[in-house]
Design a protein around this nucleic acid. Structure first.
Lengths: 239, 239, 239, 239
DNA sequence: AATGAATGAGGCTTCATTCAT
DNA sequence: GATGAATGAAGCCTCATTCAT
């Protein structure tokens, strides 16, 4: 029963207990499958109290997302070593990121899996957090590009895509590390740095990968369902 | 909606219509939030018919996952140009991947977002598909490593992590491309190749990125919830 | 299944197959829990054919009840040896009864358990059959009473009650014999004859059992639910 | 309906109200045909409350069966006059039995008709109750047999069958009394005592009924369904 | 004579949410 | 500050029954 029967706690404390419980349940079950009953029980309080303090299931979830997004952002920022060169800063930031997600798997699931799944409102909150991190990475890459002599700048759009890829790879690796026994935060960070920075390094010294000369590949002919006479009754989603 | 009221179709056709509708609804709402009513209505049939043919919500979802996993795998395999060197094969495979996901965004959401969220059974089905693709990429990387003179092999574990990172980055970029106006499949593939292959190229010619010498970074101090006197009532998940 | 795929049978045969299947399913599941799907499948035909021939679930059940009531009545009548004295006739009739119910357990369940449970219509059909048998027994008892010299008649109401008790005991014993391994029809009949006829014999020779003199027993004070302050909200059923 | 709209009652009271309503509905309709809607309405509460307290239709039925089985057993035990000779004890017990069943006809239908029909679980609960009563009767018969001089004991198996027949007859008479206007509990008990005890009295003084000498009767020739060319498509149940 | 295709209606169950204390 | 009692709304699933061939 969570906190046992320690009654009459100040409001702020009770609220955090509720959020702790909610993150746990939301993380494991997802928004829809989580029940307010379960959350209240795990928090050790009655359901009406949850409503009194957090108003509704939606608001409760939103509070979880905001709290955990903030915690993650802060953890990453706090982990970065300011004085280092760009790659050192990235390395330290990644380590903080993987450490935090490994220690708070339910929070990470809430942010990465469930918040993006459930609706515009939460997706936007997560997107804001993500944009914050992407901006930070973008700036690191740009700084690194300035440092490299041979080639003045990477074009801005290119940098945006690269930062996106890097953050995306980090997110996927966080999932992977969380699901795979024996992969530490440090190893995950090292793998990603190897994968990313060496490549970025080449880019920045003017040696990008170039696609082979070839005729346009025909796009995959029949993408999904309509392998049946009569065709798809439901119009295919716009590309 | 959908096909209009064309009654009395043969079973196989109706089944595909139902799957089309289900992929769409599941993709947009997620498993739990999707309702059988909505799916039946979009498919243009009554609910009992859906149950007669697909048996249950679980089985319907499973059928969606299997159909779309197969379609995606086949699209990628079909897109790969067999005769090319490893980087050319990867390039063509990535283009097919991004093209397919861009054309079937709901299917991609089902596979990447919802199936992994909802339960062991579906997660396993998606994991199998993913393993298939990861294996393919792993083999490409290994082949490329053999082709490079200077360094005989990358260690096998390293290759596994790299393939994972590459596929993860691809998945994240697919989400990103799907959410961002004006990013084409070709651009996404190019960005990823630049990001990944140039880096891999360096790795394979014996120039990995090396971490700077530095003292251990303190792990992020306050990870998540308990920023409040009295501490967390719910024990934090083990790291 | 059932009859295999022997198509195009004359109507009468198909109807009997359907009734066979229906008796089996109704006997095992009861009216409500039996499904027309299951019955049609066991009969080896499609559902619309069942409706074409037997019209509705209600009518199908009714046909089962009528067929099996008739079969039971006839079996008993056929089993009675006409020339014997009353006890011999009863003995032979009981043997036929227990034999028939033992051989057709599902039919017996339909008549004794389910038809009486499901509604006025079927209860009436079974009651008619039962009345037929009770009348037969009543007449035997009356005949026996006439044969006995010492006491002219048992009063008619008394005879009715006795016949009812005898038939009731027979029905209960049929259930018991059906549920208990190793009890044959013959044994059940012998037990009942011992139980009933010896007693009836005494009655008919003017030696009834007489109740002891005693004060009226207080009726069981609070029979069922209302052991709780506030009393029963639902009025107790009329006595 | 029922209690009017007296809201906010303590749980125990509401639970009894629900059981009262459930016994009534189950008794009249049977398990399958009873609907939770109807029960909730008769109890004067909303359906979710029924589920909150009683958990499921199955559990609700089970609670009814247990409550009523216990009530019936206790009513019979309480009705027996301990000091009397065996026939007096039986007489008093039977009167209590018929009185209780007459006052609680729906409860009696639940126990005797529906619980035995619906599934192993409930059948077992009723069987336990019945075994309790049969054991009591068995012991009475055995005691009476000891009291009678001329014949030392009835064999044990014989006593079991007789007790079964007696209880069965009682059950059937309870149904009959419940369905027939103007038959009182006292009359039903008297009829059964006359029927049973006089017979048992003869048995116990060594004058059993003996079957007439006769050739084996041919078993009833065509028992049930297959009076039709082509024979039964559904195999007849094993005898 | 026979059936594949299809559905309106209804039942069990759960859940977010509120009242009254 | 906190809760036991209670419900409207909605979801999954099944079934008896019919239509068109």
């Amino acid at each position: 029963m969570g906190a046992g029967k320690t009654k009459r706690m100040p409001r702020a404390v009770r609220e955090q207990q509720m959020l702790d419980a909610a993150v746990r349940i939301f993380g494991q079950r997802g928004y829809m499958a989580a029940s307010m009953d379960e959350i209240a029980e795990l928090a050790g309080v009655s359901k009406p109290l949850v409503y009194l303090y957090l108003n509704s299931k939606d608001d409760l979830f939103s509070a979880c997302v905001r709290r955990e997004a903030r915690a993650l952002t802060q953890a990453v920022r706090a982990g970065v070593r300011p004085g280092l060169p760009p790659d050192g800063q990235l390395w330290s930031g990644l380590r903080a990121f993987f450490t935090h997600t490994a220690r708070n798997p339910d929070a990470w699931r809430v942010l990465h899996l469930h918040a993006r799944t459930h609706g515009e409102r939460f997706a936007a909150e997560v997107a804001a957090m993500r944009a914050d991190i992407v901006a930070f990475v973008t700036q690191l890459i740009a700084a690194a590009a300035r440092d490299a002599h041979r080639r003045p700048h990477l074009p801005e759009e290119e940098v945006a895509g690269l930062a996106e890829a890097l953050v995306g790879a980090a997110e996927s690796l966080a999932d992977w590390a969380g699901a795979t026994e024996g992969v530490t935060a440090k190893q995950a960070a090292a793998t990603l740095m190897n994968f990313a920075w060496a490549g970025l390094g080449d880019l920045m010294t003017g040696r990008p990968w170039v696609p082979p000369e070839e005729p346009e590949p025909e796009p995959a002919p029949v993408p999904g369902g309509a392998a049946v006479p009569g065709g798809a009754a439901v119009p295919v989603q716009a590309g």
